[in-house]
């Protein structure tokens, strides 16, 4: 298992557009990815679950993956979140 913590920078939080791009990014890797936010574990491939979590700008999230490409997955996804996910 590999994990890293990152802060959400999107001014309007994890809404539909960034969430769907996030899910697409997760789909590039074979290792299942999870997000931990406010103590809840959320499947990283679920747009709906991510939106339902109501993650806001400035919230810290932990990205974790377990599997063959876990490190590459977490690094890439964290970099993607830091980049603002297209917002």
């Amino acid at each position: 298992m590999y994990s890293k913590t990152v802060t959400l920078v999107n001014p309007q939080g994890f809404h539909m557009r960034p969430a769907s791009l996030f899910v697409a990014e997760v789909g590039k890797f074979s290792a299942p990815v999870k997000i931990v936010a406010k103590g809840n574990e959320i499947p990283g491939n679920s747009l709906m679950a991510i939106m339902a979590a109501g993650i806001k700008c400035g919230d810290e999230i932990e990205v974790k993956a377990e599997g063959e490409d876990e490190q590459a997955a977490v690094e890439a996804i964290v970099a993607f979140v830091e980049s603002g996910m297209g917002d």
């Binding site: 939080g13 939106m51 339902a52 109501g54």
Partner: peptide
């Protein structure tokens, strides 16, 4: 369930998505 969760976030944008679901 999802619609209710969206509405409970208190975030206007997400709350609107409850209508979509």
């Amino acid at each position: 369930n999802f619609a209710a969760m969206f509405e409970a976030t208190g975030d206007e944008l997400t709350m609107q998505r409850a209508t979509d679901i």
